[in-house]
Design a protein around this nucleic acid. Structure first.
Lengths: 156, 156
DNA sequence: GGTGAAAAGTTAGCTTT
DNA sequence: AAAGCTAACTTTTCACC
């Protein structure tokens, strides 16, 4: 549906601004893209309704909610049967600690992302969450030591 | 700074709502957390100024801007000297195609994330971007085939 | 796509608990 | 010290050009 929407230069300018500041007032946005507020609002609504803009969110500082770090973990399943995948995925969906989970190409792996409070919490995650997931053969954690770049926005 | 801010139950309720809808009107937010608009606004401003809320952003549908898929790539450098890391990181920062880059624990690796338009664009990325990065010894790409879960929000 | 006016939302000073 | 009240101000929204 939204994959077929044609975007012009102004639409892209709007998306660029809104990806930087999702709370930008329509009046200010209109000024930045050289449009009247009403014309600008019509475009924004169209972008929202067509699903080009999926969601507006507040990004919060992980440290402020006690999350000291993030880890990416690559997971290999024991069996690649539908039942095994389903069981694994259901467990992932049920775990609030797991923030992201992707089925990735390569050697039939999953990759998950989670945030931890401290070393103790990280250990808890490994023993209480990771090791409890069904069908896991191997897992390889990559703790984030430093962030060079992090973006929620796409280049336009 | 923001790591020391004490959050009470109402603050957490506010963050929970704003992580789901960053454009929620203050009046509506106030109602959901059972506060008057002015009291609610004071708390939101405090959360913003203390850096607990880092940013508001619009999340856009990758397909709508022509991005068919995402890939995570693990990168091993040839040498782990400061100069090598600096050269690599400078090149990463200069590449608009690379959305995220983390220095991760394990075998002295980096992990990067990028989005591609189609198979051709993916190949372009590998030959024009990945292979041009300095100091790269090995890289291992994990194409996202399916997303089981994806979240920008932290559980509160 | 722009204009203008009504409706809705924001915000700050002051009072109350 | 933090919440509520009120009222001025700003922004959104929409019928109409």
């Amino acid at each position: 549906m939204s994959s077929e929407v044609q975007l012009d230069t102004i639409d892209r300018a709007i998306l660029k601004e809104l990806q930087k500041d999702g709370r930008l007032a329509n009046q200010d946005l209109a000024q930045r893209v050289h449009l009247s507020p009403s014309a600008c609002l019509r475009r924004v609504k169209r972008l929202e309704e067509s699903g080009v803009i999926a969601q507006y969110v507040a990004l919060i500082n992980p440290k402020a909610v006690g999350k000291q770090g993030t880890s990416y973990t690559i997971i290999n399943l024991e069996r690649m049967t539908t039942a095994a995948l389903d069981a694994f995925e259901a467990a992932v969906l049920a775990s609030p600690d797991i923030l992201d989970c992707f089925y990735v190409a390569g050697s039939n792996d999953y990759m998950i992302r989670f945030a931890y409070k401290d070393a103790e919490d990280l250990e808890r995650f490994h023993t209480q969450v990771l090791m409890q997931l069904p069908e896991v053969a191997r897992s390889n954690s990559m703790l984030v030591l430093r962030t060079i770049k992090k973006s929620t926005a796409f280049p336009l």
